[in-house]
Nucleic acid binder design. Structure first.
Lengths: 243, 243
DNA sequence: CGAGTCTTTGATGCATATCAAGCTTAGTGG
DNA sequence: CCACTAAGCTTGATATGCATCAAAGACTCG
């Protein structure tokens, strides 16, 4: 289960660069700065809990490929996936793994050491890099908002609504990272993982996905999801009231 | 529903000072700095949504007395109380109210303007104030952890476990603020508010509280809760597995 | 003392969990 | 290339936790 090394830090930064650029337009100078803050590439098998290093010595990493999660384990075996990490996301132990959460790869995964980048973003940056900092901040804010959204989902939405809401969120995130478009997105995780994220049993997760499929709100097969008419799915999800 | 003014910024800082001191020992110098960062005192009726100012112009405030909440309203009238604020807590719009959450008083409430204090804590502080900054940071981290804990509660705990977990959390927070001890704590909110926080119906909230009462895990009457044997209640709550 | 708000109780229904088993798919080794 | 296996997906039957509906006590306040 140990990670395999790989030292070519090449275009692994693309999803991160795109995600940042989706918030604030960036120049090549900014993208280069991002790449320079990255280090070693590592490959991890699914279920690996050593993302960012061993427990107690974890460092920030960029998730370059594959999906990962911050997981809470209860004593009796129940699990809650608190948040999902997609390619282009930064997994920062200091921010994302408070409270004894364990980072874990869900699929096989490629991570890139990002300690220097994360450190740089909390220091004073030269004026020319301000747009980068702004993008970084917006990206972090989006991650925090997702946690709030997750509370609302689990607290007040039905299984059906939760699922619609999550799928739209995943689609949007992958679009920002350049990993999805009108022709669909990857969804390389098992229904059990989705269930653990949405607080449902596997069986009910399956039935809920089938219902969405039957009503042609999603087209889900072979680890891919297509949302033919986003507006219809969006009507299922319950929006916050802008009171 | 509008707020009433009141300009004596006296000992309203006590719960905040105690909460901070519960994380890192503080000297009078630190406490004085906290008080100097505070401004006008305001009184609000229950259900007031103008804590910290009107929508769009909200400023950080210290909650000095009474309970408040960050609430999400769904279009069809469902509500989710995402987080609770207790005396001594800072309500910072930039951190606590992302994603269209509305701050709202649950009881009648007293707030103190805290813009200067919050701003000061994000600037470079003289060395002598480092302990204060450390306490502040720990206090914020605890608030963030509570959000994660809330996801776990709603996602994977039963109504009974959720309630036990929340009550222990409230007891600990109030102890830190000097508002509770072995003789119990205040709980000035309606069961409907608790239900909206724990993702339950009022009726089921009521039955769950009664069950805890019947089993003598809590003594709950007249807006006060006593936990006679914390260890027993703690056994009900499901702890995270320290794997 | 009357009117609202909150709590409590009972009856009923539904969403979701649990249990059990069959099916499908992708590996794996012979 | 074909069993064989294991993981994941799907389906049916049943159980249960929690929601909903309705109404009756308890408090609180003017």
């Amino acid at each position: 289960m140990g990670p395999a090394l790989n030292s070519q830090t090449e275009a692994w930064a693309a999803p991160l660069e795109r995600q940042l650029a989706s918030h604030v337009a960036l120049r090549e100078e900014h993208r280069a700065f991002v790449r320079e803050g990255l280090g070693e590439v590592q490959t991890h098998e699914p279920e690996d809990v050593t993302l960012g290093g061993a427990r107690g010595a974890r460092q920030p990493v960029l998730l370059a490929a594959g999906w990962a999660a911050a997981v809470a384990h209860l004593q009796d075996g129940r699990k809650q996936i608190v948040s999902l990490f997609l390619p282009g996301d930064i997994i920062d132990p200091a921010l994302d793994l408070r409270t004894g959460l364990t980072p874990q790869s869900l699929t096989s995964v490629r991570t890139v050491e990002a300690r220097r980048l994360v450190a740089a973003m909390s220091e004073d940056l030269p004026g020319a890099l301000q747009p980068l900092l702004a993008a970084w901040t917006l990206s972090r804010a989006a991650a925090e908002s997702r946690l709030v959204r997750q509370v609302i989902r689990l607290g007040r939405l039905s299984a059906y609504e939760r699922t619609a809401d999550l799928l739209l969120d995943l689609q949007e995130r992958q679009e920002r990272a350049g990993l999805a478009d009108g022709r669909g997105m990857r969804m390389p995780v098992t229904q059990e993982m989705l269930a653990d994220h949405l607080g449902l049993s596997v069986v009910h997760m399956n039935r809920t996905l089938q219902q969405l499929r039957r009503e042609r709100l999603i087209d889900y097969r072979g680890g891919r999801v297509l949302i033919p008419e986003p507006a219809r799915l969006d009507a299922v999800r319950r929006r916050l009231d802008e009171k």
